[in-house]
Simulated assay, not measured.
Amino acid sequence: MKINNFNRWIWLLFIIFLILGLMNPAFGVMAGACMVSPVAMGFFKGRIWCGRYCPRGSFYDQVLARVGKKNRRIPVLLKRAWFRWAVFVSLMAFMAYNLFRAEKTLTGIGAVFYTMVVLTTFIGTILGYFFSPRSWCKICPMGTLAVVAQRGVKEPVTLDSGRCKSCRICTRSCPMEILVHSFKEDGKVLAPDCLKCGVCIQSCPVKALHFGTGRKNAA
C-alpha cells in the first residue's frame, strides 16, 4: 500500500500557483490555505500536513531531492529552538509590516502573500540544495505553529519493539533526521517534528513501524 500518494504529485499545484501569481498577484491569497492548514490539522494529527499534503514539501521531496549532493544533512543551527523562533518572529513581523503597507485590495494583499512564498521558497531551495531537502521544514513558521498546536505528539507512528532489530535504517531514511530507532522502548515515535510522511515505515525491512495500532499500513 502506498502511504503517501499525494506527496508524489501535489508539487505540481505549487508550480501552478507560482505561475498564476506571476500573472496576477491576486492569486497570492491562495497561499493563506497552506498557511492555515498545517496549523489546523496540527490540533488533530500533528505535522501530517507537512509530510503528506504540503505542495512545497512535495516539491522538496520529489524535485529538490533529486538534485544536489547525496547524503545531505540538516544544519545543526536549524535544529536549535531559539533559531526556529527567531525565524518565526522575523518572518511574521516582515509579513505584518508589508500587509500594513500594502494596498488593501485583493491584488495588494495577494502580492504580499505571493512575495512571502517566493522568498521562503528561495531560502528553502538554497538550503535544500546544499543541505537536506527538508531543511526548511525545521524552521518553517507554519510548521512551528503546527508543533505548538499539537501540544505533544498526535497520532504518532507506532514502533513494534518485538519486531524491531535496531538496524537504524528508519533513522537514516527520515527526512527530518529523527532518531526513529531510539523510540523502541516507548513503542511510539514521540518526536514533535515527525511529518507522518511514512518514509520510515516503507524503509523498515521487518515492518516494525506503522500508523495506528495495526500493521495494515506497513505494507
Rank of each mutant, 00 (worst) to 15 (best):
C167R: 01
Y129F: 15
G128E: 08
R101G: 01
L106T: 14
A111C: 02
L127C: 05
P156M: 00
R134W: 06
R134T: 09
G110N: 08
V147T: 14
S161Q: 07
C137D: 02
K165Y: 13
A102V: 13
E103V: 11
A149S: 10
D160Q: 04
T120A: 07
K154C: 08
L145Q: 15
C164F: 13
A111T: 12
K165D: 15
C167D: 06
C137Q: 03
R134L: 01
S161E: 10
C137A: 01
R151H: 13
R163M: 04
Y129N: 03
G108S: 13
Q150N: 08
Y114S: 05
Y114T: 04
L145K: 15
T158D: 02
E155F: 07
I109Q: 09
V153A: 01
P141D: 12
I139N: 03
S161W: 01
G162F: 11
T120W: 14
S166C: 02
S166H: 02
G110C: 05
K154L: 09
C167E: 03
E103Q: 13
I169A: 04
V118F: 07
V118L: 14
T158Y: 12
V157M: 04
P141C: 11
V112M: 07
F130Y: 15
V148M: 09
T115Y: 14
E103M: 05
